[in-house]
Structure formats: C-alpha cells, structure tokens
Amino acid sequence: MIRFLGLQTHQSSCHCLSGPFGCRSIIAFVVAVCLAVGPVAAGPGEYLKKPDTWFAGDEAKKIAANILSFQTELGGWPKNESTTAGPYTGDRKDLKPTYDNGATTDELRFLARIYSATKDAPYKTAFDRGLDYVLAGQYPNGGWPQYHPPGKGYHRHITFNDNAMVRLLTFLREVATTKTYAFVDDARRKTAATAFDRGIVCILKCQIKVDGKLTAWCAQHDEIDFRPRPARTFELATLSGSESVGITRILMSLDDPSPEVVRAVEAAAAWFEAAKLTGIRVASEKDEKGPKGVNKVVVKDPTAPPLWARFYEIGTNKPVFADRDGVQKMALADIGYERRNGYAWYGAWPEKLLTVGYPAWKKRVAAKTGR
C-alpha cells in the first residue's frame, strides 16, 4: 500500500457535474437497459471477483442498470437495499444515501470496473457523482459522519461504527493509487489522496488516552473535539473491541509509518492484550420461555479461546452492556432478552491481528527503522 501523509489541510469539495451526461441522461440510460437479473442477487462487492471480460458483457450491464437506479440525487446509495437484484421502482427522492452498513463504496467499485471495460459515459458520470458524495462528506478535521449532510443526531459524529470510516479511507486510497481508477481526473485523484491523509490524522486524534496512556477507539467520536460519543441508546461511549481492529489495520497498512502511527499501533495492540477475556464462552441455550426458544449466556470454560467484548468502560476496561434504555450494565445477563440475543456483544475480532498481523508489522517496521 502507498502511504499518503503530505498532511495538506484544504477541505475536500464536491465537483459540479454538467454537460451531456447529467442525471437525466443516466436515468434514461437505466431505463434503456434495466432488466432484473433474478429474484436473488449478490451484493455489488461479490461481483468484483469477476474478470474484466465479464464486466463487458450483458449480465454486468443489467446489474449496473440496477445499481444506477438506486443512486440517490446526492450521489450515494442507501443501506440495507439489494442494489443489484432488480431496479428501484419507487420515488428516487425517498432514497437516502449513506456510508453506513457497507453502502456506496462497493457500488462505486462496480461502476469503475464496468466503465473501464465498456467506456460507456453514463457509468463514469455516475461514478464521479458518487465519488464527489464521498469527498463532500469529509469534515475539515478528516472524519466522516454516517451520511452527508449529517443532520443533528448522533449520525453527525465521526463514525467508525461497522468500519464505515475505514471503508471510505480504503476506497479513497484505491482511487488515488490503483490502475482501476486511471480514468478518474487528476483533480479528484489528488483530492482523494489528500482526504486519505486527513483521515489518518483524524484517527490519531481520536485515539483515547486513559491516565495519559493511549488505548483504542470508540465506535463514534465527536466531530468537533474528538471525544468518545454514544450512538444508538445501547451503543455507549466506550472503548470498542471491534471497530478498533479495523482502525489499527489501516494504520498498519501504511508503507512508511510515522512515529505517531507506530505509537498508535503499539498502544492499540497492548490494549487488545489487556482487554482479552479468557476462561469464558458465549453459548446458546434452550429457553422455552424466550420468544425464539433460545437464549445467549456466558459460561465458564477454561479451554475456550480468547474473546473480546464489543464495548469496554473507559477507565476500568470492564465489559459493558445496555438495553435500548441506555442504562449501562456490567453483565450480558443483566440486559433484556431482545438486546441480549440481537447484538454481537462478544467476538474474536482482534485475534488474527494479534497473532498474525501485528507480529508481521513489527518485523516490517523494525526492518525499515532498525528498531
């Protein structure tokens, strides 16, 4: 991976698009070729495994037409929609674009591939609009909200939740550096590189200190002062055992990490080790009184592999849990059935990073720095 840390500070801007291939032409293009590809389809990311020749064929064009039909007026795509299975048939004004839940980035990757294969101008126009939506959403401090414009709710916070910001940074690095995006104009590619740089700086500013010691990250951070912030009522302002993994990985992917980045990675790895939970596992037990007949419980098991909690209390490093009332509890059993069984409170998220990724990264950094 190529590292961008020129640390330019100008704000990304959204390029205005005009000419013969504006929104009306794209809609007409969709209508002309939009045929459903069946009742069940993979997400756009699954099709990226296809060879370049496939993207020049009729099946790819049908899927692209479906993807284009879901592109919102602001340029991004909605979440929790199957944007490849069939065309959108509702009012386009009802579609709300977002960076959350994997939305927008894979649709853009698909359009880049099919434009490179076909050179059909509407694909490029749609791609440019989507890339501009990504660039326009970045705050001057380098972070992204959950969607743009961000509104006044928790969605306005810098959003690491579900790896939203890490996905955007990964995509922008691809745009700035890889041959797949050679068709993108120089101005946008340079802006993507600068946005990546600013995103890394934002990540470093968000890393939480406890008693002067760097630890990990919250799933959301304040868009003004970077402090940890809550999201949904059961997602408290805590240290994240899940989202912090993706953040650490993107820092580790930098080719020539600065001393600040090295310190951030080493501190995060130390925190993952300190936050590791042993001697327990999460089991699903029969529960005839439960709505679904099963119930998640934490049981003691000295042979169980390590686990990490989704959320840790800042300052004590104790796992915390909450219902939709937002009241912090200290055990999974203390929250109600619905949230207890409907959310990923435990996982092995950092395990591969600690056992494979981090040791390899240490060797690579040592080889470059002599430390």
Rank of each mutant, 00 (worst) to 15 (best):
L17M: 09
K318Q: 14
C202H: 01
G86W: 00
A32G: 08
L236W: 00
L7D: 04
G75A: 07
T170F: 02
I335L: 14
S116A: 15
Y147W: 13
W349T: 14
C202N: 01
K61E: 09
M252P: 02
V30R: 10
V299P: 05
A270S: 09
D100F: 07
E73A: 11
R113F: 01
D52E: 12
F55Q: 08
R189A: 06
K329D: 09
C14Q: 15
V175P: 01
R156G: 06
E273T: 12
G241I: 03
F272H: 03
A231D: 13
N161V: 08
I67V: 13
A268T: 03
M165W: 07
A126S: 04
P140H: 10
Q220A: 08
K318R: 15
K124A: 10
G22C: 12
E338S: 10
V327D: 14
A42N: 15
G19C: 09
Q8F: 10
T125I: 06
L135A: 01
I67Y: 00
Y133S: 00
S82G: 11
T105V: 15
T177A: 11
K179A: 10
L74H: 02
P230D: 05
K276L: 05
I335T: 08
Y115I: 01
D120K: 11
L135V: 00
L307R: 07
T104I: 06
K62F: 07
G279Y: 13
T303W: 01
S253E: 14
H148S: 03
P20W: 07
I27H: 12
H148I: 00
Y337M: 08
L108H: 00
D94V: 07
T104N: 01
V327S: 14
A195T: 00
P350K: 06
Y181I: 05
G90M: 11
K318I: 15
V294S: 14
S13E: 12
L204W: 05
R371E: 14
R281G: 02
E59M: 09
G246N: 00
Y358E: 05
P140K: 06
R198I: 05
E243T: 02
R324L: 09
